[in-house]
Amino acid sequence: MHLKNHKGLILLLFLLVIPLKIDSNYLYSTLVIIAIYSIVVQGLGILMGYAGQVSFGHAAFFGLGGYTAAILTTRFQWPTLLALLAAAILPGIIAAIIGRQTLKLRELYLALATLGFGILVHIIFNEGGELTGGPSGMSGIPNLTIGIISFDNDQKFYLLVWFMLLLILVGIYNLVHSRTGRALCSIRESEYAAENAGVDCARLKLQAFIFSALLAGLAGGLYAFYVSFISPSPFSFHTSVQFVLMAVIGGLGTFWGPLLGAVVVVSLNELLREIVPLLIPGAGGEYQIIIYGIILVGLMIFQPKGLSSIGRYFRLPLKKELKPEG
């Protein structure tokens, strides 16, 4: 890959150094959460934006990753790095098992099936008894340690997750500009045409599904190590919806979409939490929920292709739709 194609990535790298000068735990924790969500949405973006398959169950893979890391480190004393690896692999295996049948379904049926899977896994977290700690969850997850470095504060963790995200971005850039990436796009446009052109749709869709589950699991593992406590509530249907939202709001099938979506949705949540009480004195979280829903509906009506497409109006290099290169 050529350097000149990567102005954005290099810019991002520079932007990431800036917060190191700032000493604010709030900023760090927000940025860590953005990066963790963004990793999930990167995978989901491949699945939805390129392969054209929707999933309303990715909070389940996210949670499976988190619980795998938590259970392996606290109950079985696995080394943390190995547990993180397992946190990515286990959701991948589960995706491989359920994917083949599930991905035969189309559109709304696929949405329903993945939604069901998500709720089912959430129930398992809640009813898992000893193993998952039930509704109250489990605490005491150790710090992630890689070699001699222990990621025991927000700043270190910030560097770790954004470095991982950067690696994933580079990987995805290469993926979507490869033969496989173009084949994925062809599935989105028309499965029949893709089959006729010799693309093995079922296999590719499954691979995209597994890939997205791996990334969600990895993000879940990172989340568990970061928060050091895990319970079922962050892995509910609501989170799955958030992931889909981030993918759609950022712009499906665009390179910067998933990152942009994660930034926008997380910032929006934080902003609403700060601003709403200022505008409406004494307002609780209810207003936040209502406004969040309204913004969601508004975006879908007025900007159905996601925010990346706004970039065109300002001539920003945000939108980078995949075009087959000669």
Partner: peptide, 15 residues
């Protein structure tokens, strides 16, 4: 898109 709109509506109504 329609599905997301109805999800948004349900979130707002719940709020």
């Amino acid at each position: 898109g329609m599905l997301i709109i109805t999800i948004g509506l349900s979130i707002s109504l719940r709020g």
